[in-house]
């Protein structure tokens, strides 16, 4: 049986996740339970959502350096307005999504490097978050808290959420014609244009969709932490990029994989727990986390090379 290249792409991240999971279970058998799995993975849910958002941006060959501050901002909105007056909260979220779409348009029309624009936006979001919550606080809306701490039978909510996110985005990005067009913009936007699509609209829509997932990420995060602060998700910028790459995505060419991105986010979270169970000193932990990334990426590069050799033969 011949495996498709997309499947090959998924093998490495899936295998590394499985390997890490086995190692964690071996070291900490307590983790092999309903609550254990939930504790291991519940903080991965917002990271997975942010990773999907980043993946969408990367699908059109851009990079979003404001992801962390934007998710922090959304978390602050969720812990303040969404809780006290849901209507205004939702309006703010819609406005933020519109801003994301506008960023996409600006980047496209002015042919600006997305890194510069989003880096600038990161200060805007960070400032807004501080304005909303100058000191840590706020309360998570009851329904968000309920959703994130729900106890569905058999499978913990963290796993259910991850599978749902992966399935829905897989359908949107890999199966729908809209998804094909998004990836087309990343692959070869001229041909997409010639096929009758409006690239500017596609980019705006992609950015807006990324904004939607980032908003969901902020809301999910507040559901877990119960309250917010303005710096709550700063790590998400780099984590989301690493998650996409770990999951088999690439910086250019519209080569992305939603399932891979979710797996990548889970792997990154698990790597942190793994290192903490290993009792590695914190001075070395960042380095060790980096080492795990390098190993996985090296494996992938090797596989890619195999893939191209097959093709040229």
């Amino acid at each position: 049986m011949k495996l498709s290249s997309a499947t090959v792409r998924l093998i490495i991240p899936a295998a590394s996740l499985a390997l890490l999971l086995v190692a964690v279970f071996y070291m900490q058998p307590r983790a092999m339970s309903y609550t254990g799995l939930n504790l291991l993975f519940n903080l991965a849910v917002p990271i997975a959502l942010a990773t999907i958002a980043q993946m969408l941006i990367m699908a059109v060959n851009d990079l979003d350096l404001s992801m962390g501050t934007f998710v922090s901002f959304c978390a602050c909105v969720a812990a303040t307005f969404l809780q006290t007056s849901p209507a205004i909260g939702i309006l703010i979220f819609l406005g933020a999504i519109a801003v994301y779409a506008a960023i996409g348009v600006v980047i496209h029309v002015r042919e600006l490097p997305s890194i510069v624009v989003t880096l600038g936006m990161s200060f805007v979001w960070g400032g807004l978050a501080v304005l909303l919550l100058p000191s840590p606080g706020g309360v998570a809306p009851g329904w968000v808290r309920w959703l994130m701490t729900a106890k569905p039978p058999v499978v913990p909510v963290a796993i259910v959420a991850s599978i749902l996110i992966a399935a829905i985005t897989h359908f949107v990005v890999m199966r729908s014609s809209f998804g094909v067009a998004i990836r087309g913009v990343g692959g070869n936007h001229r041909s997409v244009e010639r096929a009758g699509w409006s690239v500017i609209r596609l980019r705006a829509a992609t950015y807006a969709l990324a904004g939607v997932f980032a908003v969901l990420s902020g809301v999910a995060l507040v559901g877990l932490t119960t309250s917010a602060d303005a710096n709550i998700a700063l790590r998400y910028t780099l984590l989301s990029i690493a998650g996409v790459i770990l999951g088999g995505g690439e910086f250019v060419g519209g080569k992305v994989s939603p399932i891979g991105a979710v797996i990548g986010a889970l792997t990154l979270t698990l790597a942190g727990s793994f290192l903490s169970f290993m009792r590695i000193s914190p001075d070395w932990q960042i380095g060790a986390q980096g080492a795990i990334l390098v190993v996985v990426l090296a494996l992938r590069l090797a596989l890619n090379r195999l893939e191209t050799r097959e093709k040229t033969r």
Binding site: Q28, G36, D229, A233, R235, Y236, T269, G272
Partner: peptide, 13 residues
């Protein structure tokens, strides 16, 4: 904070 939250959850395990 998110990293420390994960750390505390690991301690529970």
């Amino acid at each position: 904070a998110t990293e420390q939250a994960a750390q505390i959850q690991n301690m529970i395990l």
